[in-house]
Nucleic acid binder design. Structure first.
Lengths: 342, 342
DNA sequence: TTGTAAGCGTTATCAT
DNA sequence: ATGATAACGCTTACAA
């Protein structure tokens, strides 16, 4: 395949001029430009970006690390990242950590060797240190966290306010007349699930509502156990009239249980999920849910990285973006006329 | 950052030897190996894969092109591709065509310039020619289609048998006692949706069941229109007792309509979706669905590409894999005791 | 505006 | 088993 040398030979011009045509195209006569371009056409020349990257020291690849790609929160965020980054000439390399710290470490090592221009990461559930990320700083590769982050000041990140999301949803249930609200919690180990639980509990407290043992149903790896716990709590007094689930699937499971028991939604029990999954709107009743704004988060994370990639004129301030989630109200939690809605 | 030259200087060995340690490690003494490795450790040396790729002419990147990443069919397939390919030392570059032929063309041009080792693609709905793919062949970059393919013999591809999937599902409905089955069709323009419709119609024919006008509800961009059509058909004689949807979301919409009309599922109307989305299992009743085996497809496509990447000993035969889908039977279509299940 | 030439960090071909 | 050296295709001072 033709290269710049071939073009130089074919046009009688020098290598440098050829290069300039494809880069600083202003420093070249319109005429010679034409000559070079037509020769390029004829020889079906294509620039070799690998060579360019090696020589110039900057590649146009950006590494994106997620636990796994086939979850809506990640694939939606990646979708908008790809849109933003490809518009700026970058391409993204996708890697899955499978929730393993060690794998995450290997991936980062690999991305460094590939000389990526930057990295965007949602850390694994196992990850609670930045040791494996140090190499990025040493190599001057900018880094942005999204979705899940670490509680450290000097990191760029884009996350949603999980506390606030759960708080909003709980307040909404209270506003709808619920007085006995229970929470289907997520894994205690995962910070964002702890935040959601805190938001739930604080909202109850602020509304002077009681929170008894058993009102927070702890996460249990066994689905059967969770269903049993929920079933038991639904039968106990005081009867729950509202449910905040830590995720939409969790809410779906609850809906199934309610359906089986013949408990009407939202009349007897109102329910709100978390994540605003695609299917929420297609259910009957439609499932109210807290939107994590996945696409917004992805777009913002990508934009933040693009800024870091700019030749730094001044010393940049670390951005710690915390987006407020948006509660999407649907039938599953709607008992009274409501003005707010999507 | 340290490079091989630095290691050479530090150890007193030659560049060539250093390189050998990291590649043909057998042609080197265990002793010198040790020396080099410890020096590498001390200087925190990391091979520059870009340079290696440039020199050797082969990169370890593989381009994956999908219409959009945030749909389960694509994200699940990509998930397993990433697993297979990263295990063989490849990394994947994700690109979204947004269902545009032109964008697809630009992406391919870009991937060629990046010197990817291979490409895996699910073509856009607009794409009905391989013109834009010709360059890959010219550059000797192997290509594998998945999910959606073109009807050409000389292409590697992994797809599921959509005809068979719809046929199976329809037969299942018949076996469950349904005699008036209707089909919620997908866009006429999309080949896989036409196939599903064909499978549906053939199954009815083979079972000597009538197919009247209005039994296939055509796809309509407007959701409201589709709901109206379905509602009308549900009210008309002869009353439908079975529904095959072209997709799970479509089935979910139908479930909602049935629910609103107070029509019991599966007692009065049995229903089967297509895609086996994550949420199918959490619904009440659980939604029966034809699994597209996304992960299998992804895994196979990746394996096929890996084979193409092998130094071709003999002339390879083009593989045109067509996987039979798997019907996942759940409550939504179960009226009789059944032996088969997951 | 154009040309000359060095060099990015490897791999690969010769020798030794 | 190890070393010297050219080459991959491009960018970029510097010179003209």
């Amino acid at each position: 395949m033709a290269n710049m040398k071939d073009l130089a030979k074919a046009t009688g011009l020098s290598l440098a001029t050829i290069s300039r045509v494809f880069n600083d195209s202003d420093k070249v006569t319109a005429q010679t430009r034409e000559i070079v371009l037509s020769a390029a056409e004829k020889l079906s020349y294509r620039p070799n970006k690998m060579a360019a990257a090696l020589r110039s020291g900057r590649s146009n690849s950006i590494g994106v690390i997620v636990p796994v790609i086939d979850r809506e929160v990640f694939s939606s965020a990646i979708k908008s990242m790809e849109e933003v980054l490809s518009a700026s000439g970058y391409n993204i390399i996708i890697c899955q950590s499978h929730e393993s710290y060690q794998r995450e470490q290997e991936i980062i090592e690999n991305l460094v060797q590939l000389k990526v221009a930057g990295v965007i990461i949602s850390i694994s559930k196992e990850t609670n240190t930045t040791d494996h990320l140090a190499v990025l700083e040493k190599e001057n590769i900018p880094l942005v966290f999204f979705d899940r982050s670490l509680e450290l000041g000097k990191l760029n990140s884009v996350v949603i306010n999980n506390y606030n999301g759960a708080y909003q949803a709980t307040q909404h249930l209270v506003d709808q007349g619920c007085r006995q609200i229970i929470h289907l919690a997520g894994k205690e180990k995962v910070p964002i699930f702890r935040e959601r639980r805190r938001g739930f509990e604080d909202a109850l407290r602020r509304n002077k509502l009681a929170l008894e043992d058993g009102d927070v149903i702890a996460f249990d790896e066994s689905q059967a156990n969770r269903v049993a716990q929920l079933t038991a709590r639904l039968a106990a007094e005081p009867r729950p009239d509202g449910i905040l689930a830590h995720g939409d699937i969790s809410a779906l499971v609850a809906l199934r249980v309610l359906n089986e028991k013949g408990i009407r939604v939202p009349a007897e029990v109102a329910i709100v999920g978390f994540g605003d999954s695609l299917f929420c709107t297609y259910l009957e009743p439609g499932l109210s849910s807290v939107s994590q704004r996945n696409e917004d988060v992805g777009r913002l994370a990508a934009s933040l990285l693009l800024e870091e990639l700019q030749p730094q004129e001044a010393d940049r301030v670390v951005a710690h973006q915390v987006l407020p989630p948006v509660l999407k109200i649907r039938k599953s939690s709607l008992r009274r006329p409501q003005t707010t809605d999507e």
